[in-house]
Amino acid sequence: MTLVVENVSVRVGGRDLVSEVSLEVAEGEVLGLAGPNGAGKSTLLRTLYRARRPTSGRVLLDGRDVWRQPAGWLARRLAAVLQESGGDFELTVYDVVAMGRTPHKRAFDGDNHEDKAIIADALARLDVAGLAYAPFDRLSGGEKQRVLIARALAQRPATMVLDEPTNHLDLRHQLDALELVRGLGVTAVIALHDLNLAAAFCDRVCVMDGGRVVAVGPPAEVLTPALLAEVYRVQAEVTVHPETGVPQLSLRTGGRP
């Protein structure tokens, strides 16, 4: 599914958190969203999964304005993986992943065999099947993150929005999670702090700063020392990996440009 962001602005309390952002994500494309803290990445993502209505502008999924569709319409097509927010209720991992089936269900519908198979499959793919009946709140940060990705899989979406999905993950699980999303073939927008991961896994990278898009394009074109100096105020060297051809960043510590 194609995702189009059209002149989206989000104004809160007189401050522009996102101003006039336009983006196009093609069918099956993985777009990385990068930028310093407070750049507006999470706010922009919120307008995509219907958690914050844009002050102006439109978000189109396959040509339809997501904010003009019924709430369930989007959830059957787009899944979001958000930062974990704990609760005081003893939900099991299975309960959390089973929530992913909700958009496909009407009132009083039970989980049929297909639902159960989809839930079991999502648990297995994220390597959390053994934790199925463990209390979600007592998992480690990385385990929770994987469970939330599993919940998004259980939604069977054609588009995914992920906000820092690799935040709490160890190196192995970081690669596994991003490879999994790539392997699904879905259209995806992923906010990532780790620019090396963004370079390795994203077709294009969008760099935001101060609520605006500073640069969009293939990683090798966007992640340049000049841009990193301007946006992140760091001195970085960019080399190209001899085997994979992926641009790699190494930071120089200490001095500021």
Binding site: Y49, A71, A80, F89, Q155
Partner: peptide, 13 residues
């Protein structure tokens, strides 16, 4: 129980 944002992303108004 999953939180407001997660509930919204799962299709709940």
């Amino acid at each position: 129980l999953a939180g407001e944002e997660a509930a919204a992303s799962l299709g709940l108004d």
